[in-house]
Computed example of a mutant assay.
Amino acid sequence: MAATMVAGIFFSVLLGNRLNSQFTDISRLSAEAVFARAEERATAERLTIARDLHDSLAKSIHGIRMLAESLDSSLGAENHPDAPLSHTLLEAADEASREARLVLDGLRSGGDEDIIGALVEEATRWGARTGLSVTVNRGDSDTPLPCSTEAMWQLQRILGEILANIERHAHATSVDLSIFHDDSCFRLDVRDNGIGFREDVKDLYREGHYGLAGLRERSETLNGAFSIDSPSEPTAGTRVRLRVPITSLHSASDKEKIV
Score class of each variant (00 low, 15 high):
Asp55Val: 08
Ala118Phe: 04
Leu163Trp: 05
Glu161His: 11
Glu207His: 12
Asp52Ala: 15
Val13Ala: 15
Asp254Ser: 08
Glu39Gln: 07
Ala31Asn: 05
Ala118Arg: 10
Val259Gly: 07
Ser109Arg: 01
Val120Arg: 04
Leu89Pro: 15
Leu57His: 12
Ser60Ile: 05
Ile9Arg: 13
Arg41His: 08
Ser248Arg: 09
Gly76Gln: 01
Leu215Cys: 02
Tyr210Asp: 14
Glu95Arg: 05
Ser74Phe: 05
Leu90Glu: 13
Leu155His: 03
Val6Ala: 03
Asn165Met: 10
Ile61Gln: 02
Leu47His: 14
Gln22Met: 07
Ser12Arg: 15
Leu145Ile: 10
Asp94Ser: 11
Trp126Val: 00
Ser27Phe: 10
Ser251Lys: 03
His181Asn: 07
Gln22Pro: 13
Pro231Trp: 11
Ala128Glu: 07
Gln154Trp: 08
Gly194Glu: 02
Arg216Cys: 13
Ser232Phe: 12
Leu102Lys: 04
Val240Leu: 01
Thr43Val: 10
Ala123Pro: 01
Ser73Arg: 14
Ala33Lys: 07
His171Asn: 12
Thr143His: 13
Leu132Met: 06
Thr43Ala: 13
Asp254Asn: 15
Asp72Glu: 15
His87Gln: 08
Leu177Gly: 05
Asp105Ile: 00
Asn223Val: 00
Leu159Pro: 06
Arg41Trp: 03
Gly214Thr: 06
Thr88Asn: 11
Thr48Pro: 12
Glu233Gln: 06
Thr43Lys: 15
Gly131Ile: 00
Leu145Lys: 12
Ala100Lys: 13
Glu199Phe: 09
Thr135Lys: 13
Thr247Ile: 04
Glu167Lys: 03
Pro84Gly: 01
Asp229His: 15
Ala123Val: 01
Ile49Lys: 09
Ile195Thr: 15
Pro231Phe: 03
Ser253Tyr: 07
Thr143Leu: 14
Pro81Val: 01
Lys257Pro: 07
Ser109Met: 14
Arg51Ile: 11
His209Ala: 08
Thr135Glu: 13
Glu167Thr: 02
Leu155Met: 02
Val175Glu: 02
Ala33Leu: 14
Asp55Thr: 10
Ala151Ser: 08
His80Arg: 09
Ala213His: 14
Val201Gln: 05
Asp176Met: 03
Arg37Leu: 09
Leu188Gln: 00
Asn20Trp: 06
Ser219Asn: 04
Thr235Met: 13
His62Met: 10
Arg125Phe: 10
